[in-house]
Nucleic acid binder design. Structure first.
Lengths: 230, 230
DNA sequence: GCTTTCCTATGAACTGCTTCACAGACGCAG
DNA sequence: CTGCGTCTGTGAAGCAGTTCATAGGAAAGC
């Protein structure tokens, strides 16, 4: 029912300055859709027709190289939005988004999205801040790929995952890994083998404990030291 | 005098939907400033206080690693704007901007900038498109650093420079190099030596001709082939 | 003019990371 | 239970690119 959608949308940061009326209107123009795990939502190069609000689940953003290889840029969680780039500049999708687990999204078409921006300046201003944040993240991504070696990038990635998608606190943080070592490698621009080697080394050193489907950080400071050294 | 500034600003894409009144108001709140070549305008990490419109000259955007090393992300020319990220999200500057030659800028302080956005929704919408373009460029930058080897990145950079800041057309394109080999290396995330080696190789092959202060592309297709192979 | 400094030039040595090759483990379909 | 596909584990070999070392040339300061 619509009320649930209104409720969900009102909790999304981008929309929380919207008046009730606008929220209702938006929810009427939005469809919700559920995606299976590992499903591709938007594909780089395709025409951009919709804007998405991630209501439930996690999804990753990847860019692709010439051959099949891809590299992940971001992992998004509930409350985050995506798909705005192509809508804003009328160009094809700039990246690919794939679910990591079952996801529920609110889907807003191009016209409704532009209507929302025109009708509600505060949303446009907030969206500017969202894009500014993306630019920051991407800038850091470029820096990391340029200046950090593979162990540092991997350590940083694990710490990021721990902070954003991990459970537990203090010394021990647990990350339920929905990511294979291959995907972890894609994230940091390294091979599966390199990831494996480093995880193994760190396991032996007692910094982490990793099993098939989860990874536990035992020594946050050790990983921080690895991530920060250049 | 102010009329000249109004005129300059009206030719900036971001502002060309502004009504005359708004333009006058903006120009009253803006100061123009001239910077010497190689002068740093904003420094990564500093608090963000101003928004800049590049009216004349070229400037580069760089990100810095832990030690002094830096890597360039973009070269901007007249009509482009920068400094909005820190203003939009209230965080410190996300990158450093340095002039390559003498530059004239219009400088708008934070308050005036926010006032402009609030007063003129079309500017906010256009700024969204500008940011979308930046995100696209940065995404491509990440891709390139991840998937392309040094020769490919260098070739691509030269082609970009030729297209955006070069003179002449057809087979021969001339780039007045304001960039040392070191800086060229910074752009593509490679060492001075690697840049030198590749330029030398290409000179010998007759793809380019390079002297101290300019570089001429003789065989665009050859460089394209190098840039595109993975 | 001369000296200092920055930029280019070039090769040798080193190395981090990838590529390749293979083996074992887990989970799922029949 | 058995077979197949996907993921992890591990080492050897190769290589792209960096680091290091050294020299020459152009420009800039005094």
């Amino acid at each position: 029912m619509a009320d649930a959608l209104i409720d969900s949308l009102s909790r999304v940061w981008l929309f929380n300055a919207l008046a009730k009326d606008d929220l209702v209107r938006l929810s009427q123009r939005a469809k919700t859709r559920v995606y299976k795990p590992r499903e591709t939502i938007v594909t780089k190069g395709d025409p951009a027709t919709d804007f998405f609000v991630l209501l439930r689940g996690r999804a990753k953003v990847t860019a692709q190289g010439a051959d099949g290889a891809d590299t992940a840029i971001n992992v998004m969680g509930p409350g985050e939005v995506f798909g705005e780039i192509g809508i804003l500049d009328g160009q094809p999708r700039s990246a690919t988004v794939t679910t990591l687990e079952e996801c529920e999204m609110a889907v807003v078409d191009k016209r409704a999205f532009h209507g929302l921006l025109a009708a509600s300046p505060p949303v446009a201003i907030k969206l500017l801040a969202v894009l500014a944040g993306r630019i920051r993240e991407l800038t850091i991504c470029v820096e990391d790929r340029t200046f950090l070696d593979v162990p540092a990038r991997l350590a940083k990635q694990l710490l990021w995952l721990a902070g954003n998608h991990g459970t537990g606190s203090g010394a021990r943080v647990r990350i339920e890994l929905k990511l294979s070592q291959q995907e972890l490698g894609d994230f940091i621009g390294a091979t599966r083998e390199s990831v494996n080697k480093n995880l193994r080394d760190w396991s032996r050193s007692g910094f982490i404990k990793h099993e098939r489907d989860y990874l536990e950080i035992l020594d946050l400071d050790a990983l921080r030291a690895i991530a920060e050294r250049r």
